[in-house]
Nucleic acid binder design. Structure first.
Lengths: 195, 195
DNA sequence: GGCTTATTTTAATCTTCATTAGAATTATTG
DNA sequence: CAATAATTCTAATGAAGATTAAAATAAGCC
């Protein structure tokens, strides 16, 4: 039977590595996870990981780039499919949450950006800044088109992103809970608490 | 002039140590901050910190206990002063945010709970679990008294706590911004985005 | 001023992992 | 099957930084 070309097999394995690492970082904290912990999940020795990444710093960096990709992808899809600002926000949230709690997850919480090497740190920060900025643009658009109530888009963006970014802290792969998150998060943030 | 008793002077200095540590952890990440970094802020050597804490693990632990205290205090005050569930939630949020961005801050983000020693970890997790549970009770109460719309209190609690816990990630001591957070956060979470 | 306690420093030491080099194994391809 | 490339392992090495012990300084007290 035909095998995958070497190139993609490498990519696939590396992606599994990144997911294993993200899972460890989220569950055990950064300082609490050694390369051996990550390697154990993949049934490899710690040394074998160096075939896929240059060093631990790069492993973290790649986890964060992956996290940023996921966010961007969710946002792009939402923008392409929706008209009003509110709809876009809600669908973006839904997509982003779906990815985080689904097959593509877990996504690493960006807790250790400051300890990346300067070049990687700047790159990740730039991705993150751009994402926030895009999100604020959507909020602005919603205010313009009347779908979203007047608000400080900076603060609102920070609040919503915080709620989103915190999910991996308390969600650990329960399908029932995953459904609830996807259902409730957009609703809560759209309607607020008030009756 | 009369000096403070030794006991309290020690407490005060240790509290300054905890704040310095929290600041470092939030800004540089856990793995990115050495004891020397913390000591530098206090104009001490790293070794001197061992006069105040048994080791780095205990330093982190105490930061987290302090964070839990702050949350509990804000909640207790809110409960004592408010009638409806909604009012209690909003005032709690306000108090908690005020403390985080004010003199008592910064408060350490709980990113490294899993790497605490089992006893400390369990204790911190228990505090955190209890706080969440209390918050959910307030939400339930709000639903009962009609001030809060029906919702999944678990998810809603997680969402709001996430937004709150994430604040130290992006707020770094700007007074103008501090005011905005205190003003906007309760409003956003109370009314939602919808116009 | 001397005595005692509190605080901080200096100068090692010790540990934990990340990292590397090179050998061994497994897969792929002609 | 032979040859080459792709993966993984074993066994050191190394470095950062936490920790310790003992000495030095500073503060409070009789």
């Amino acid at each position: 039977m035909a095998q995958d070309p070497v190139e993609t097999r490498f990519q696939l394995k590396r992606d599994r590595l990144l997911k294993a690492a993200a899972d460890c970082f989220n569950k055990k904290g950064y300082s609490g996870t050694s390369l051996k912990d990550v390697a154990d999940i993949l049934n490899l020795t710690d040394a074998a990981l160096y075939y896929y990444v240059r060093n631990k710093e790069e492993l973290v960096y790649l986890c964060y780039v992956r996290a940023a990709d996921v966010g961007r992808e969710a946002m792009d899809r939402a923008i392409a499919e929706c008209d009003t600002g509110l709809d876009t926000v809600l669908r973006y949230l839904r997509y982003h949450v779906e990815i985080m709690v689904g097959e593509r997850g877990p996504i690493a919480i960006m807790s250790e950006v400051p300890s990346l090497r300067p070049q990687h740190r700047d790159e990740v920060l730039e991705l993150s800044r751009k994402h926030s900025s895009n999100f604020e643009d959507i909020l602005e658009q919603g205010i313009s088109d009347g779908s979203i109530a007047k608000c400080d888009v900076r603060m609102t963006g920070n609040a919503i992103m915080g709620a989103l970014n915190w999910i991996p802290k308390w969600f650990h792969g329960d399908a029932e809970m995953a459904r609830k998150i996807v259902d409730e998060f957009p609703r809560i943030l759209s309607n607020g608490l008030r009756n």
